[in-house]
């Protein structure tokens, strides 16, 4: 009776987790808010047609020439605050949210398996981070194409690329930014195992993202800068050059992997031994 029944699917819980996450009104509202970022930018530039390359966020001056730059601008604007905010909410909620509802005890006596549940929670939060970045980029491309002329994209190195090559670069960029958020997701997951108050875990995660960026801006702390998980968040310019520079991609991947391993291990250590008293 305890062994696998015919037809048991080990990934059913991940499906259930994703279904629960993405059907939740809060999740939909957050993704809708992110979709508003490129829309706002595109509309603002269109109405004022004041693309001034000297001021404002990166790429904003290029939008009037090429609508595809809306996606890049929106992403750059969202990285410091909006994306960590949304990721902090989802990652902070992973375990603490279930504990708060009391459903954590029923998942565990199902039995979901503590490590398995933690991995599924992390996977779902990571998929949310990717979805959040995708929403910005896809909506940005769509609204940019609707409001501005589109054409071959001029890279930072001066070369121009066609639509196919642009799609590839955009995909690489989505990968880069999503990867950047996976370290933060692991931190949020760990904090979420510490409490039964999801709002506390969310706030702590978001505060850490802000604190890390502030520390990164202080020259006095330059010794620790390379170790901050936010240090390479905006370091994707190399992907917009020809040939593509992979240095920052590799460094960022290594850095994020380090955070994932450390905080993943902390989360596992904490969660697999914790008394569930809620």
């Amino acid at each position: 009776m305890s062994r696998d029944e015919p037809g048991s699917r080990p990934l059913a819980l991940l499906g259930s987790e994703l279904g629960t996450l993405f059907r939740r009104r809060r999740t939909i509202a957050m993704l809708a808010a992110l979709a508003l970022v490129p829309i706002l930018i595109a509309v603002a530039v269109r109405v004022t047609s004041a693309g001034d390359a000297g001021r404002g966020p990166a790429f904003i001056g290029d939008i009037t020439q090429n609508g595809l730059f809306v996606a890049f601008t929106a992403l750059t604007v969202s990285i410091p605050l909006f994306l960590p905010l949304m990721v902090g909410v989802v990652a902070g909620d992973t375990i603490a949210g279930e504990a708060n509802l009391g459903t954590l005890r029923y998942l565990l006596i199902a039995p979901a398996g503590r490590l398995r549940l933690l991995l599924i929670k992390y996977a779902a939060a990571g998929i949310f981070a990717i979805a959040a970045v995708l929403v910005i980029v896809l909506v940005g491309i769509a609204i940019g194409a609707a409001l501005f002329p589109i054409g071959p994209v001029a890279l930072l190195s001066g070369d121009t690329i066609g639509a196919g090559e642009f799609a590839l670069r955009a995909l690489l960029l989505v990968g880069y930014v999503s990867l950047s958020l996976l370290g933060l997701t692991a931190i949020g997951l760990f904090i979420s195992t510490l409490t039964t108050v999801p709002v506390g875990a969310m706030a702590a995660t978001i505060v850490l993202a802000a604190a890390s960026q502030i520390a990164d801006a202080l020259p006095q702390l330059s010794a620790v800068h390379p170790w901050l998980f936010t240090h390479l968040w905006l370091g994707f310019a190399d992907l917009l050059r020809n040939p593509i520079g992979w240095d920052s991609y590799g460094q960022n991947a290594l850095l994020q992997l380090g955070y994932i391993v450390v905080f993943g291990a902390l989360a596992a250590g904490r969660f697999t031994t914790k008394d569930i008293l809620s």
Partner: peptide, 15 residues
């Protein structure tokens, strides 16, 4: 119930 049953990895999705 769908969610809690899915958490039991041995439970059959078919039934």
């Amino acid at each position: 119930l769908l969610r809690l049953d899915a958490a039991d990895r041995h439970a059959s999705s078919r039934t």
